[in-house]
Design a protein around this nucleic acid. Sequence first.
DNA 1: TATTAAAATGCAAGCGCTTACATTGCTATT
DNA 2: AATAGCAATGTAAGCGCTTGCATTTTAATA
Lengths: 340, 340
Amino acid sequence: MSKEQPTPTLQDVATAAKVSTATVSRCLNFPDQVKEKTRTKVLKAIKMLSYSPNFGARAMASRRTDTIGAIIPTMGNAIFARGLQAFQDELHLHGFTMLVASTSYCEDIEEEQIRALVGRGADALLLIGHARSPEIYRFLEAQGVPALVTWAFDTNLSRPSIGFDNQKAMCRMAKKVIDLGHRNLALVSAETILNDRAKARQLGLEDAMVAANLCAKTLHIVKTTYGIEEGATAFEQVMKAAPQTTAVFCGNDVLAVGALRRARELGFKIPQDVSIIGFDDIELAEIAYPALTTVHVPHREMGRRAGEALIRLLNEGTQIEAVELEANIVFRDTLAPARN
Amino acid sequence: MSKEQPTPTLQDVATAAKVSTATVSRCLNFPDQVKEKTRTKVLKAIKMLSYSPNFGARAMASRRTDTIGAIIPTMGNAIFARGLQAFQDELHLHGFTMLVASTSYCEDIEEEQIRALVGRGADALLLIGHARSPEIYRFLEAQGVPALVTWAFDTNLSRPSIGFDNQKAMCRMAKKVIDLGHRNLALVSAETILNDRAKARQLGLEDAMVAANLCAKTLHIVKTTYGIEEGATAFEQVMKAAPQTTAVFCGNDVLAVGALRRARELGFKIPQDVSIIGFDDIELAEIAYPALTTVHVPHREMGRRAGEALIRLLNEGTQIEAVELEANIVFRDTLAPARN
DNA sequence: TATTAAAATGCAAGCGCTTACATTGCTATT
DNA sequence: AATAGCAATGTAAGCGCTTGCATTTTAATA
């Protein structure tokens, strides 16, 4: 910006190497279509000028970007990191590039980011969860950009997804907890309006209660935003409002770790006094003390499969088919039979 | 890709709204240069077609992208997350967009990512640490893309940075530890060849030893790669090779947390038997049990300032000036006087 | 109503690249 | 030595957008 020296272009390289722009372009994209000698000459010119192709121009001329966008709720913690890494690895294997954007769990920002990524030429998009306005899906349709939903699995929806059934997984977990004699349950959850994963987890918990002849109404729910501190506060609220609670489910591990910490600070013995259950099985869960009992989400597998499916769609036109993965329970040290 | 319906273009909108492309463009970029009535008409057409501008084309025509790239070693944990978030917030405030790429601590990938981001039109770059080949700096120069270094501060280098002095900070920390009677020290560190932060931290530790008349050669160093498990393994190695060690410094909190866990598993009482010291002060440090004594890095402040500086440079041409921030020690529960 | 300045719009030339098609340079065959 | 046939290169037409300049419309003034 300051020196205002013009960025070297393909044309500059062509001139320097005394060939046409077409040859330089081919040198870059189809090296074996060009004679050894010419290639060397061109590459030397490129190096000399520190030339780097303008992606936008290339995308415009060739009408493809080999780029796939991923839009996740947050980069602030490890929940999506592992899955995304696997996704990225898979893309990289096939010469694709990943672009990430995060939404802070906000619908408007998500829409903005989707537009940004599409505008930047993403050939396809990876989305988390199904819940978003139909208008967005319409937009993607109009733009001809395929989108794949992950971190969720729901056969009721027409759009295929690669993920796991949050509701079923939570239900399984809750059954185990109820089997241990817990009757007074609480749930610390993220807002469920725009978060279908959180919603499904709540429903799963309620399913288990109903199946065990417990009234789902007795579930003490505290909704909060994302974060360790928020989890801590929510735990305190729960125990204040419903001191008889013996098991606190948390919508995710981050909240659970916060709850755990506050529990310790308040003098609760975990898991003797209260059981705390997480969801996701991120690194934090293992590090927490006591180590967190949680639902293991197959992050890596999910990311890899999603990448694979999208690339197949892009390269071969193979339609994506839904894949349901298993989310297993990981028993660690924060779950014990109900007290008394 | 499948339906092969053409993406709507500016031209399509213009036709639908019966105006020229110039008017549609102005409608999008300078709404008040266009008459109310026309604008409405155009916006309606845009909505109807689900039109979204092609970023590459716009960038090419207008020669700016309002995009700043950030290249960090890893997204896999929280080390850079907080700082990046602050950076992003600052950019967003001024209408800029952030693009992130990660390098897995690998020099080649970093170069690739830098080229990718520059090719995508980043107006400027945020880099972590100074250490990289001069060729890359030359490339950025040739491309006219300013780059700002953070997470480090070193007045010996000509390139300005906004960060803190890793060496000084570690030295301060080490002095405290030595003051508590520790004489047999160990360091678990990331590879220092391409990581000037890790290198500086090691030097700082050695500085403190020398200042306390300890021979720096007695420092037991274990180099490892990044990760909790790696930290755990390294700790075990340290205690096997040098059982007299009473204080284990870790190059970062992730390694420290791993060390902490393994220490517990091996039956060490922390901090009575061994002190463990981290660096970074990420969330993990507080969650760990016992809570980790570590060096607090001013992540948010650093990110914010970096964003501010870059935007000032881009918008007003104000040269970036180096800023040194403080990194303070956070005493928690993993540091105690040396045993016996 | 005629005149003029300002506001609104249109026209058209690129931005840096790819690629179909045309041209040239080789090698190999006759 | 002539020529077919392929490999290597060049030519030039866009890709979707912005923007300086020209033109038209509108509003304000005489």
